[in-house]
């Protein structure tokens, strides 16, 4: 075994890598869910609430059933229901999806806190992880490469979704609905139904993201469990230009950037840690500015979305 403290500055890139793997999963699932919803032409701002409901439901069901996977499935179901409600409410004429989203977020937080009270104390079974660090004899590397099954599932899902949008009938349907309601109607597609389903499935993804928070990392249910990941993920989708594979990279980037603050402090760079903690957000601003265009509207933005119309 190598002397642990000899790791020194190497701890920083390692922490960023480890952080990217540990912290990115909720970002990934919520942004994939939001990507699907937005591709169908709606915005669901309520995913922060769905994330917290997912975290609570996942933890509670894992505790009662003894199986973390039942927890994840329940979290997905809870997210699905939240997505359905959002989708259904937005199907009415003149209902604004952003307003509904904000209400759903607050309702979600309130319900999760209310029903989650009895689960703050107990310890529930956690999700397993797979060790990819077997080749190294450095414990820090082994720890950083403990990869959770949900992270792998999320990565696969991102590529699958990208393939789906490009190559399948379902993907085409969602894209048509998102780009032009009239064109969709001409093709005999019922736009509202597609949007409700896309919002529901998007909610289910966000629920799974929440269950990762409570069942793996940081791995317990508390009322402060989500600190805006759900909201940031909505921004991530725009940042990723509505492309699921970009969502994956953006989530990794966010996770890694979030690890910079603690990692720098741990190697003795301690001045101004508040600034390091702002790194992910500064990064977002920077990239958005760098990729912005004065000539075109947002590239890749679905035409029917209320913010781009």
């Amino acid at each position: 075994m190598t002397d642990a403290s000899a790791l020194g500055m190497w701890g920083v890139p390692l922490a960023i890598l480890g952080g990217a793997i540990r912290v990115s999963t909720p970002f990934l699932f919520v942004s994939l869910g939001e990507c699907l919803t937005e591709r169908s032409g709606r915005i669901n701002l309520g995913l922060e609430g769905t994330l917290v409901i997912g975290a609570m439901t996942g933890y509670a069901m894992s505790y009662h059933s003894g199986s973390p996977f039942i927890g994840v499935a329940s979290a997905a179901l809870a997210g699905l229901v939240f997505g359905l409600i959002h989708g259904w409410l937005c199907s009415f004429r003149h209902v604004n999806d952003i307003a509904v989203g904000i209400s759903m977020m607050i309702v979600g937080l309130g319900l999760a806190f209310y029903f989650g009270k009895p689960y703050i104390q107990p310890t529930a079974p956690r999700l397993p992880s797979i060790s990819f660090g077997w080749w190294s004899d450095i414990p820090q590397v082994q720890a950083a490469l403990q990869v959770n099954v949900l992270f792998i599932a999320g990565a696969v899902l991102a590529f699958l979704m990208a393939w789906m949008f490009r190559n399948t009938r379902i993907g085409l349907t969602v894209r048509v609905v998102g780009d032009s309601t009239d064109a969709a109607r001409t093709l005999g597609i019922r736009p509202t139904r597609v949007r409700v389903l896309a919002t529901a499935v998007g909610g289910a993804f966000a629920g799974v993201g929440g269950s990762y928070l409570s069942l793996y990392y940081p791995g317990s249910w508390s009322e402060g469990i989500a600190s805006g990941q759900g909201l940031m993920a909505v921004a991530l989708v725009i940042f990723a230009r509505w492309n699921p594979i970009n969502c994956f990279w953006a989530a990794l980037l966010f996770g890694g950037a979030g690890a910079i603050g603690p990692a720098l402090q741990s190697v003795g760079i301690t001045q101004g840690y508040y600034l390091f903690y702002a790194a992910p957000y500064v990064l977002t601003l920077g990239i958005l500015v760098a990729t912005s265009s004065t000539e075109r509207a947002m590239t890749g933005a679905p035409g029917e979305m209320s913010i781009t119309k």
Partner: peptide, 15 residues
Amino acid sequence: PVKEAEATNALADQG
């Protein structure tokens, strides 16, 4: 919670 977990991991990483 997430930052606390990250901080704990960073401490463990540094020995």
